[in-house]
Simulated scan of single mutants.
Amino acid sequence: MRVCFQLQVRPDRLDEYVRRHAAVPPEMLQAIVDAGRRDYSLFLRDDGLLIGTYETDDDEAARRALAEDPRTRAWEAEMADFFVALDGRPDQGAPRLREVFNLEEQAAAAGLAESREPAETGRPA
C-alpha cells in the first residue's frame, strides 16, 4: 500500500529541517527499513508544507514497530519541535491523505501496457 501524509514545518525552522534530513542517522534509516517502509520520500514547499510518501505492506504494523523501536525515540522527539500544531509523534500525528488517482492501477485496469520509456515526441533526436 502507498501512504501519503502532510505536516507543516515551522517557517523559522525550514533550513534546519532540510539540513537534518540531508544526513539522517544510519540507525534511524535502519529502523524505518526494519519497520517495513520503503520508497519513502519527503517533499517540502517553501512555505513549510511537507508531504511524505512511502510504501508498506501493513501501515499499522509499521507505525507500531517505529513507536516501539528505541532507535526512533530520540530522533522523533527532536523532530517534533519542527512542526506546527502536531499532536503527538510526527509518525503518528501526521494526517494521512486519501489517494484518488493512481496511473499504474488505472492503466493496468484499462489493459494498457506499462512503459518506463519517455513518450515519442515526433522530433528527430
Rank of each mutant, 00 (worst) to 15 (best):
V3C: 02
F5T: 07
Q6T: 13
L7V: 05
V9F: 00
V9T: 04
V9Q: 00
R10M: 11
P11Y: 01
E16V: 10
E16S: 15
Y17F: 13
H21E: 02
A31K: 03
I32V: 15
V33T: 13
D34S: 09
A35Y: 02
G36M: 12
R38H: 04
R38Q: 00
D39M: 11
Y40K: 03
L42A: 13
L42G: 10
F43L: 14
L44D: 01
L50K: 07
G52M: 08
T53G: 10
T53W: 06
T53H: 10
T56W: 08
D57F: 06
D59T: 04
A61K: 08
A61W: 03
A65M: 00
L66N: 08
A67P: 00
D69M: 09
T72R: 10
R73A: 14
W75H: 08
E76F: 07
E78G: 05
E78K: 07
M79E: 05
V84I: 11
V84H: 01
D87V: 10
G88F: 12
R89V: 13
P90F: 13
D91Q: 10
Q92H: 13
G93V: 06
G93Y: 06
A94V: 01
R96I: 14
R96A: 10
L97Q: 02
E99G: 09
V100G: 03
L103Y: 14
E105I: 09
Q106V: 14
G111R: 08
L112G: 05
A113C: 06
S115C: 07
R116K: 11
P118M: 00
A119V: 15
E120L: 14
G122V: 01
A125D: 13
